[in-house]
């Protein structure tokens, strides 16, 4: 028979677990909605982790370069065993060359985009990704000290990447367009087609982007580009993606378009923060 002391201990543990659960769910409920301000604790943590993340990112890029070299080396070995020794050196050079070419292309594209864009842009590097399979967010090395504010759009040379969800002095968290919470709380992106059809972008878990139309009979062609309309916080005329297929919802009038994103979200290195917002309530708009 269990002693009363043991019972007491178990009861206390059960009570503590219950209180912890209630507190956790309360905290989740409070922070479930989008916030433009982060708490001092989050700010301090981001500031402390920033140099560690930059250092880890640097090491990871180096390791990736080595990994790429090894991969190419293996392929070349299979192709030509007789020239193995020469191929080893060539593969390493090739790998380095590819990295340089890629960086060169990205920088050229970024420069070209900067010339083309009608908005003021701020270049930023991705230093970390959200450590979770459920959220799609990245951290960039520009923060409130550089003029970055919550809800500012973030783009790369391919198109719209996402929007700033929170800032600290040195970093900013970017919520990607493929994050399931992107369109929630009215902070998403209004969208339009070249034909003038208007709608709203929503993202489901799994990164599927859908455009819901305002009209019940939209004129859509596969492959058409989809741009932001400027109706929400994201400025107009930023490329979101391309029309994929038109689907019907529960009601026959409920039409939505599956959109193939323009951006390759697996290769995010250099991004640009658009220092302009269509709604002044998220912060002061740039000229």
């Amino acid at each position: 028979m269990p002693s009363p002391m043991r019972n007491n201990k178990q009861l206390r543990r059960f009570g503590a677990a219950l209180v912890a659960l209630v507190l956790l769910f309360g905290l989740m409920a409070v922070t479930a909605r989008e916030r433009s301000q982060v708490t001092p604790v989050e700010k301090a943590l981001a500031t402390v982790l920033y140099p560690l993340q930059v250092a880890t990112d640097w090491v990871a890029r180096k390791v990736q370069g080595v990994g790429q070299s090894v991969k190419e080396l293996t392929q070349l070995r299979d192709e030509n065993a007789r020239l193995r020794s020469q191929v080893e050196a060539a593969a390493q050079l090739e790998a380095r060359n590819q990295l340089l070419v890629r960086a060169n292309q990205q920088l050229r594209s970024a420069l070209g985009m900067k010339d083309r864009s009608k908005y003021p842009l701020l270049a930023a590097e991705v230093i970390s990704r959200t450590p979770d399979n459920w959220y799609r967010m990245v951290t960039i090395n520009r923060g409130s000290r550089d003029g970055v504010k919550a809800n500012m759009a973030v783009v790369n040379w391919q198109g719209l990447v996402g929007k700033v969800s929170a800032t600290t002095p040195f970093t900013a968290t970017v919520q990607l367009v493929i994050d399931a919470g992107f369109g929630q709380g009215g902070f998403g992106a209004g969208a339009k087609l070249p034909s003038g059809e208007l709608g709203v972008i929503q993202t489901a878990q799994g990164g599927h982007i859908q455009m819901t139309f305002f009209s019940s009979d939209p004129a859509v062609q596969t492959g058409q580009p989809v741009f932001t309309s400027g109706q929400a916080v994201i400025p107009p005329d930023l490329l979101i993606g391309y029309a994929d297929s038109l689907s019907t919802g529960e009601s026959a009038f409920d039409k939505f378009l599956n959109v193939r994103p323009a951006v390759d979200f697996n290769k995010l290195d250099t991004l640009h923060v658009v220092l302009y917002m269509t709604q002044p309530d998220g912060g002061a708009a740039a000229p």
Binding site: L27, E34, A46, Y135, S165, T173
Partner: peptide
């Protein structure tokens, strides 16, 4: 807590 504070939303989700 590290994950939740980095993500900045649903704080407590990964703690749980």
């Amino acid at each position: 807590l590290l994950i939740d504070l980095t993500a900045g939303r649903f704080i407590g989700l990964h703690v749980l």
